[in-house]
Amino acid sequence: MNNRVKTLTETALLISGVNPKKCMKCGKCSGTCPSYDKMEYHPHQFVSMVEKGQIEKLMNSASIYYCLSCMACVERCPRGVEPGKLVEAVRLMKIRQQDANHKNGNDIARIADENVPQQLLMAAMRKYRK
């Protein structure tokens, strides 16, 4: 596990308070999930993928938005793993790094149109770079 993956995994575990090692892979969460068919990664896969450090895949999947947060999986998990909290955590991580999509100062010169007013560029950077 490289450092970035490690940090992401630790963050997901910290935010959710979930210990994926408790999972016995019974699949009850997925058996219970009302959004199952809409999700690319199903609740039981979420637990397994977090354990294996595949957080980025999850962050970039629409699955995190299909979870209804009904918490049926949390309620019924026999091992107290609480997969719903993991989905919630990954969704939160995605939101927290929204600004990562935005440009930093060094990229500007390469892409800036000379017709764009300097003032606008500065404003845009100030606005998104938090």
């Binding site: 019974c26 699949g27 997925s30 049926a72």
Partner: peptide
Amino acid sequence: YIKGMVGK
């Protein structure tokens, strides 16, 4: 035999 648990 189905590997998985019942949710409901």
